[in-house]
Design a binder for these strands. Structure first.
Lengths: 131, 131
DNA sequence: CCATGTGTATTAGTGTAGTAATACACATGG
DNA sequence: CCATGTGTATTACTACACTAATACACATGG
């Protein structure tokens, strides 16, 4: 059974739909809201719910499969894999990567040194720990 | 007078030419190799030297002008500006802040330690410093 | 005024990423 | 076997980024 996921896409956000899906599902898996053995919603189901083309869903799924987060079971769908010890941490970092790349690009654009960026980021990271 | 700059573009690098130029010139200014009051090479001059279209040079120049690093003097060319207070101060960091907050929020959601985030971000920040 | 020097607005060509439409291969259950 | 369920290969369409060709506006010096 495919659980109901909190998935939402903004076609006008500039971020490709398949990538939004990829990142969100990655998050859901990393956060444990999608347990190993569970199946992702079927391509057509999700396509209808989000009003996007099935092939776009399929593309997101295929990328998740390529990354080993999910496995194709013929005739059934995409099953969430048990995380490898290292894959768990790796998967979580993958989620953050796009954001960090954007940070790096922006910092560079502004000629901000790595130290300045760290100094700015550190309090934010530690601040949000106790709530 | 336009000093001779060390500018080099690789059309096949995947990075747009205008952006290569923008970044390199930005570097030259930040590094002091291009002092305030000096002029950039003329669009046509540089276009011929690098074997690219003048409009591509112009695009890079215009972006630098938009960012306030350079000023258009009619009939003469692009003159390097004196660095403005905002170019060095808090203003630049304010731009980065929303992004960093998002990073912090995501990292927290994924239970990533600050150290892990730094380890991930550092190579990205330093990677783009090649000049 | 004219020749020559700036940068650029406008327009068009080109490549490619993203998306979509169609048809297919395979699996399952009746 | 057939109906219905998976995902996807193939193909085409579309939008946009990048680059380029042309013609223009303005400034300067003879």
């Amino acid at each position: 059974m495919a659980p109901v996921l909190f998935l939402q896409v903004s076609p006008a956000s500039g971020v490709p739909i398949y990538r939004q899906l990829q990142d969100q599902i990655r998050s859901q898996i990393a956060g444990g809201r999608l347990a190993p053995g569970e199946f992702l919603p079927s391509v057509r189901q999700l396509a209808q719910r989000l009003a996007v083309n099935p092939m776009t869903i399929s593309k997101a799924y295929s990328l998740l499969e390529r990354d080993g987060l999910v496995e194709l079971i013929r005739g059934q769908g995409m099953r969430v894999n048990a995380p490898t010890p290292s894959a768990n941490g790796k998967a979580r970092r993958q989620v953050l990567l796009p954001l960090l790349q954007q940070v790096a690009a922006t910092a560079r654009q502004l000629s901000l040194s790595p130290e300045e960026v760290f100094a700015l980021l550190e309090p934010l990271l530690k601040e949000s720990k106790h709530d």
